[in-house]
Design a protein around this nucleic acid. Structure first.
Ligand code: SF4
Ligand code: SF4
Lengths: 133, 133
DNA sequence: ACATTGTAGATCAGTTATATCCACAAATCA
DNA sequence: TGATTTGTGGATATAACTGATCTACAATGT
């Protein structure tokens, strides 16, 4: 059970875009070099973030990716869900109803994790980064 | 990102063994039928639990698996770790030190989940099951 | 027009998860 | 002892998923 590398790349890219000046888009070439990953593969991942409405892309010369204006409230959980999907950590084929103790425990544990990821927004992340400079 | 089916089988088996009378071992045949899984495969999974010291096995006629005497304090997390391993949910190849905001957020989120799983013991689970009868 | 940059689809290699088969070891019982 | 039951371990097969590449194409700016 592990977060995929794709999620890793997405988080790092968002981290970078939050810190970058919002006027000039950043090309996938540059982003890919920083993370040592192929540009076309990274592009595929970032397209998911575009479709999820977190960033926007521009083709052509001086194109690239940039944060959407109102995306300071995007959370870690939003990014992870955009890449990994929103399926539950635990799925049992036979559903014996809501009083099943296994489901109760495991799903509540997952909710605890998601709650923490939901409370960490890009805005707070940017704040943290400024402080650590 | 999902818990494996093996973890699912392990949890269900433990749930059953906690509820079963502790004197007579339960054969893998019976356990496998309940969960609709092949006996040899389930055996492989249960052997991990044996090696982790949670249950014990007995060969020969009337053999099978049973809880170890002092295993009421085994937690969900123990079982999950025995099957899935204890590796972190998130691993970045390049470690930029402990002040990295991504690691801080994601690892703390994982800790929240594990804390909840650690607090759910087999003893409490047995209690819950009695109440729901 | 032409160069630049993102998008989409096919495809592929590597890894992991799931499962099966079989030979063997250990325990019980007649 | 010998036969039967039951778990163990190794090799192997299969399917699914992940990570990655290639290529043709669309969109944009000069
Ligand atoms: S016992 Fe709970 S976890 Fe297991 S199959 Fe039934 S509902 Fe699902
Ligand atoms: S920025 Fe953080 S998460 Fe990313 S590679 Fe560095 S230490 Fe790891």
């Amino acid at each position: 059970m592990k977060y995929s590398k794709a999620t890793n790349y997405a988080l790092h890219t968002m981290l970078f875009l939050v810190a970058a000046p919002p006027d000039k888009p950043v090309g996938v070439q540059q982003l890919a070099e920083q993370q040592r990953v192929s540009p076309t593969y990274l592009s595929k991942i970032l397209t998911k973030l575009v479709k999820a409405g977190m960033i926007e892309s521009a083709s052509g010369a001086n194109g690239g990716y940039r944060l959407k204006r109102n995306s300071k409230e995007i959370s870690f959980l939003d990014i992870i869900h955009a890449i990994e999907g929103t399926a539950s950590l635990f799925d049992c084929s036979l559903d014996h109803g809501p009083e099943c103790p296994i489901q109760q425990v495991v799903l509540l544990a997952e909710e605890k994790m998601e709650e923490h990821l939901r409370n960490q927004t890009m805005a707070e992340l940017a704040q943290k980064m400024k402080m650590s400079l």
